[in-house]
């Protein structure tokens, strides 16, 4: 077995061990996730007002974006804020239905007697092509319900009383964007606004785009941020503090496995730097 395959094996074992043995550690505190929690916790929503959550991710970033989408929607559902789910990214198709269904099932199991139903708690209006063209058309629409027209099942949105008469875009109180794609995120930042309306935007980003997302947090164009799996894990901890019966054990194990993988990477970087030094020293001193 070459050194390359040995490294692969070490890495897979390091990741698998915490998962196999169910080891979990408390995640690191992330201030940006707490900011997002405060935004969703404190937003005031009147009847007819909604949250709009864009799930713009596919299987390529499922690892980070799906847990983020889950905690974001869980919090919105707990607060009974009606959610419109949609996407600018074709490969998000399945997540638009799976994520809210899973969250609703979890919450119903946690709180018997309470229900979160499609059409009341959320609707899925599917994939929306056209990127910036669609976005600027949406924000200028005088009636968002009419503009969106039908949900992904071909059902008129007028069918769902909660979403039937939203009115102008000002009635969208929170905009959630979960993506690892910079271009898609930019479309929201650049076009989801109009004269006299700047929405509250919260964002779940993949780790790779964290450094870039911070500049929008600083400028106030973003109001809260979930940073990779760690962001989702910390957010779930904050949610658990407020709702002790919620279960975030799987996410914490994932986060711990990720931490183990990082230690291996840092170890490999150190060894990778020491080995050539040692070789040079040995060559020089026989």
């Amino acid at each position: 077995m070459g050194s390359r395959r040995l490294i692969y094996l070490i890495m897979i074992v390091a990741v698998a061990a915490p998962i196999l043995f169910g080891i979990s550690q408390r995640p690191s505190r992330l201030v940006s996730a707490e900011r997002m929690y405060d935004v969703i916790e404190n937003v005031k929503v009147q009847p007819g007002e909604v949250a709009m959550v864009w799930l713009d991710f596919g299987p390529n970033t499922i690892a980070e974006n799906e847990p983020q989408a889950m905690v974001m929607i869980e919090h919105l559902f707990r607060r009974r804020i009606p959610v419109i789910l949609l996407s600018q990214y074709q490969q998000a198709e399945r997540f638009l239905s799976r994520v809210p269904q899973t969250v609703a099932r979890q919450l119903e199991a946690e709180m018997p007697g309470q229900t979160w139903r499609y059409g009341e708690a959320w609707i899925n209006v599917g994939y929306k092509p056209g990127a910036a063209i669609f976005m600027q058309s949406l924000v200028n629409a005088s009636n968002v319900s009419g503009f969106l027209g039908r949900d992904v099942n071909g059902m008129p949105i007028s069918q769902y009383p909660t979403f039937a008469s939203i009115g102008g875009i000002e009635r969208v109180k929170v905009v959630g964007e979960v993506t690892g794609l910079v271009g898609v995120f930019d479309t929201i930042i650049q076009f989801f606004q109009k004269k006299g309306y700047r929405p509250t935007i919260v964002h779940g980003c993949t780790s790779i785009t964290i450094p870039e997302a911070y500049i929008f947090l600083d400028s106030g164009q973003l109001n809260g941020l979930l940073e990779g799996i760690a962001g989702a894990a910390w957010y779930s901890e904050v949610l658990k503090n407020a709702h002790p019966s919620s279960d975030n054990s799987r996410l914490l194990v994932t986060n711990t496995a990720l931490s183990a993988a990082h230690l291996v990477i840092i170890g490999l970087i150190i060894v990778g730097n020491l080995v050539p030094l040692f070789s040079r020293w040995r060559a020089r001193h026989g």
Binding site: Q25, R26, P27, S28, L30, S207, I210, E227, G228, A230, N255, T256, L258, S259, A260, H262, L263, I265, I266, I269
Partner: peptide, 13 residues
């Protein structure tokens, strides 16, 4: 890079 990684993982603290 190391600070960013360690600061985000649970072992960092």
């Amino acid at each position: 890079a190391v600070i960013v990684m360690l600061g985000q993982i649970s072992f960092g603290k």
